[in-house]
Write a protein that binds this DNA or RNA. Structure first.
Lengths: 226, 226
DNA sequence: CGTTGAGTTGAGAGTAATCAATGTGCGTGG
DNA sequence: CCACGCACATTGATTACTCTCAACTCAACG
């Protein structure tokens, strides 16, 4: 982790702050780098502040017992991390792990709170973030409960493409493991695996090395049954 | 639905507003009554404002297809409803249904927004509400995915008691249908039923008419496996 | 007295998790 | 350069859970 300059336009806090605050924010915030696979923060740790991603991608997870994890969401440049520390417990209820090499801005709690009080527009922006994430979370809750596994895996794929996009050949820009897809869809590694071989067999999906490409989105859709 | 006076101390908006605003809020807000079973608002309807419950209890649900519903949460006096209308779509992503006869305060969007801008403390309070609900939602998401059905039903019972309490005899204060418990636990009516007969057989649970009583919380806990 | 609908129970089917076995690639050390 | 071991990928077989469907009971009501 090392301190660096921050790309203003990619940082939530800078983007939504009053111009007058920007120089102050520059002083206050610290930028850290995380290597792929490193934990940015962990379930149970005391909350010290809030993070803004301005480079790389991150998975936000929650554990069940020792072995099982659920990926709650993926986050990418421009997204906020660690705001779940707000309210109640001063301990993170979740973990955040870098999926690629990442750069994140860190703002400590006291400065953030001061900013929120002084700058209602920022406060409103953050509230919007919360509201949207709450909506997404509840929708996902329903999906995880009522959809069958194949549908959930399909949804995971769409979600991942939505978050990270595809390269010029149509492959998902992020190298994501089948284990992570399983953790997002709330299923097991093997099940994802078998489904993928079924899909590649039918030509709906292609895999090249570690990367995945969707050939037939409509056919995928059809696995989502109401 | 009829207009009535509002019990100030049970209303989120009044409780967290500046004293100077209270009289204005009194002017602006409207109180409605809803009979048990009536929908307060429904998935897909345009968002017109926000509700505060000051009497009765409510289930907040989301539908999957035509038949399957998931109860996202229970709300009772003092809780906020309809704030998920914030951000993005101006349509409710969820429905709210009265579980008992209810009285709710309604504040229309424009006045709420004005209040939030003028009163940062209120804004912060609402943000806290969002943050806490987001935490709860994500925890529940994990539970629904990784716990087995019996554990989820147990959790539902605890959750319901937590929200609504028990009467002097230890029975859950709210008459809740097995269907609703199933919808909360993400399972079917029959499964809840069979589990309940198993539990009453072992003396862990008692049912009297429509009401439910937990005799042995520890034995119930043991169905939650990590 | 028949009908309706909700409460209750049982049998069967299907899905996905678990377990186990085999295959594959890679790095390391001899 | 080869042999070995380890971790991870892949696949098949088995198990177990829970959903679905259907039947039955019982009470209320016309």
């Amino acid at each position: 982790m090392q301190k660096e300059d921050c790309l203003l336009d990619r940082c939530f806090l800078c983007k939504h702050s009053l111009p007058a605050w920007k120089s102050l924010i520059e002083l206050k915030k610290t930028t850290f780098s995380f290597k792929k696979g490193k934990k940015i923060f962990q379930e149970g740790e005391p909350v010290k502040g809030i993070f803004f991603i301005y480079e790389g991608s991150v998975k936000v997870t929650m554990n069940w017992g020792e072995q099982k994890e659920l990926i709650l969401r993926f986050a990418k440049a421009g997204d906020v991390l660690g705001h779940r520390g707000f309210g109640g417990d001063p301990f993170y209820p979740i973990s955040a792990t870098a999926l690629e090499d990442c750069k994140v801005c860190f703002i400590d709690n006291s400065f953030l709170e001061a900013s929120l009080i002084a700058n209602p527009a920022l406060s409103n922006q953050l509230m919007q973030v919360f509201a949207q994430e709450l909506q997404k979370a509840e929708k996902r809750m329903r999906d995880l409960v009522h959809m069958e596994v194949k549908g959930r895996i399909v949804l995971a794929l769409f979600e991942i493409i939505d978050a990270f996009g595809t390269d010029e050949n149509g492959y998902i820009s992020l190298q994501i493991s089948r284990q992570d897809i399983a953790s997002y869809a709330g299923t097991t590694y093997e099940t994802v695996f078998k489904f993928f071989t079924e899909l590649t067999g039918k030509g709906i999906l292609s895999t090249s090395g570690k990367s995945i490409k969707i050939n037939d989105p409509k056919a995928l859709q059809s696995f989502i049954k109401y």
